[in-house]
Design a protein around this nucleic acid. Sequence first.
DNA 1: ACAAATTAAATCGTGCACGATTTAATCGTG
DNA 2: CACGATTAAATCGTGCACGATTTAATTTGT
Lengths: 164, 164
Amino acid sequence: MTEKSLTESQAREASRANTALKLERQLCFALYSASSLFTRLYRPLLEPLGLTYPQYLVMLVLWERSPLTVSEIGAALGLDSATLTPLLKRLEAAGYVTRRRDATDERRVLVQPTERGVELKEQAKDVQKELLCRLPLPASELTALHETLGRLNRGMRNAGETES
Amino acid sequence: MTEKSLTESQAREASRANTALKLERQLCFALYSASSLFTRLYRPLLEPLGLTYPQYLVMLVLWERSPLTVSEIGAALGLDSATLTPLLKRLEAAGYVTRRRDATDERRVLVQPTERGVELKEQAKDVQKELLCRLPLPASELTALHETLGRLNRGMRNAGETES
DNA sequence: ACAAATTAAATCGTGCACGATTTAATCGTG
DNA sequence: CACGATTAAATCGTGCACGATTTAATTTGT
């Protein structure tokens, strides 16, 4: 390799790398903003139900299957007991869930929607309908986004487990 | 419309609506998880630099252009002074930025990387390279994701401004 | 059967996010 | 010029997120 070709090659290589790094920086902003804005879109609609966005996510999990232990909810959302315990206590205080020790294993706490918590599911559907109207993308794009995020998330979960 | 056809039509309609609502619920999880996992992937790499992820985002903004006022940083990231003021004070305490009142308008505070803060930019590039390796998607998919998120974010920003 | 290891939840400290309010500087209009 | 309106940042209170530690129940190895 001559001096010149080496320099050119290095320049091309550096340029490609810089493009990739720039894309990644843009992705930082895009992902952070998307998550914040999505939450912000939900907040005023959830407020009348007395739910914050993380509380809503927990209720979504519990509406699918219950009772669940704190750890099971945590596995579904990627949260630990330090975050969930106080959140669940607030949901309990609001009358939306019950928390009780599992009789067969006293270490576990079983969480389950109350009757009021189950009723909330129907009101939440109206919120979801309203939000869908406000989302500016066609369903096809939302599906594509969901799939891409799914691949990304699976990969990131692996990267997290496999790390040194 | 006969009883029967009405019922069938309604059933199809309800089914389509339920599919859309389910997609939206899945998107809630996917977006929330993606943002959390992305942050979690960055965290151990940023920790040696003494930066949290939000602090890193602020530095990314300041590396592009500075000095900026608190409001300008806030506009770039969708954050208000209640969040930024303490964060910037921590960055200042770490020696990465300076904060000073704008002489031409004493209401504003100008924020600017210190020499140390500028040096950090190079170390951050190594972090970005490392993270890119750990990301499980090809550049083409990352680009597509960035574009889709861009459309979504523009739309959500409008929806937020236009709301009742 | 029992001690050590493991597991589940709770607790503590720090930092981010945000609505609401406060303080201070600037601007606009009479 | 002056005074009310606006703007910028800071402050306060509440809730989420997470690393690290603690407490208590269960499991494992002998």
